[in-house]
Design a protein around this nucleic acid. Sequence first.
DNA 1: TCAAAAGTGTTTGGGTTACACCCATGG
DNA 2: CCATGGGTGTAACCCAAACACTTTTGA
Lengths: 227, 227
Amino acid sequence: MVDSLFEDQASGRSHPMPFTRIELAVLSIVEGNLAVLLGRRSEAPHKGKWALPGGVLRIDLDRDLDAAARRVANERLGVELPYLRQLRAVGGANRDPRAPWALSIAYRALVAIESIDPKAGKRLEALRWFAVDEVTGDTRLAFDHTDLIHAAAEAVRAEIERLELPFGFLPEKLTLGELQTCCEAILGRRLDKSSFRRRLDERRLLVPVPGEMRTGAFRPAQLYRRR
Amino acid sequence: MVDSLFEDQASGRSHPMPFTRIELAVLSIVEGNLAVLLGRRSEAPHKGKWALPGGVLRIDLDRDLDAAARRVANERLGVELPYLRQLRAVGGANRDPRAPWALSIAYRALVAIESIDPKAGKRLEALRWFAVDEVTGDTRLAFDHTDLIHAAAEAVRAEIERLELPFGFLPEKLTLGELQTCCEAILGRRLDKSSFRRRLDERRLLVPVPGEMRTGAFRPAQLYRRR
DNA sequence: TCAAAAGTGTTTGGGTTACACCCATGG
DNA sequence: CCATGGGTGTAACCCAAACACTTTTGA
């Protein structure tokens, strides 16, 4: 392994750069709970442990950080994730035995569970959904991924509280009841139907699709779409 | 310049790593307005332009990202900044002519204006405070620092709205009037005295220091300190 | 005694919760 | 006709804005 060096123009010395990766906190709703997609590592370091899917930043392939995150999503999970959002950067010495100093830029996304093909991905022997709230300090994840998962969950929950709806995750057309159930699953608590709907139409986020109804066991429900 | 390479364990190939820097958005209140500290670059690239102070990440010196930011604050500004908070990472090709791909981890901090020694720092021919709201697209800053400055201002304003007080910035003892004036300067709008104080003591953030009063031109004011 | 800032109380209004209630449908 | 979820209205409540008011000091 050769350390990459850059000239420090003032001192004339060169400095090695950190081993830089992208990590993805892909969240979804599984059985009514907010869940995160983890992969079991098939190689050292942390072989056999569960970890966020991720990959090395490729400066020859990635135009910028967001593009790097999309590429990693494609390679590891076989899925397009247009609604990725940066979570934060973590870096330090001894984070990763592959390098003296490792830096990770973590991204988060909400996805529909059907959109993930569990067979896809290299270097992971298995992919599995874990309920976010059962990933505790006891769950022995690789690296420092436990913190990242909770930060990602906190970020999406804060967005939902503010009624910033995850349109990248929602179906194009849905009923208000489905939307409420989805928000309740993310937040982990019940919402009041009346105030939920009032907040929604004050914000003019959705419009009814004329004539289109979801027909089920009981009274049909109006379908809505974005804007 | 030698690119630093890391082994890609699956493919057997090595990858060059990005040129990685720390940038600091140091904010304060200058003449009643939220202001950011910029340095005039004395060297290429962007020689002569104003930019956020920053420095190269040194994996031989910095234990982690937060430590790197504190070191850069020390070296460039000659000041200890214990209340630095990570803002975000930006990275891409062609961001910085010194390297094919440049990554910056931006930090933000609020500081008391007196704590900055404007003489300090290498590689900057001048340091100057700019009112945040006068840094627009027209102000031709180096790199992509205009965005970072506005994101930093937005972050501190959101904290003040939520009454998360910047104790690293505030004097140990202060009057409620001084605190209100300070918050008004950061937010750029007036606050109601009565509701400001009610919110403060609901949250139990401050306690009066018995007997200690600020005596001035008019009625003396009770001094308060944290918690 | 007046100006200016410290400090307090009261009213109002926006927005949310809680909850009651009607509607439409399949079984 | 009843269970179930869709859909709507209302009263109570919380919080903060607005603003009026009193207090205390130096000049």
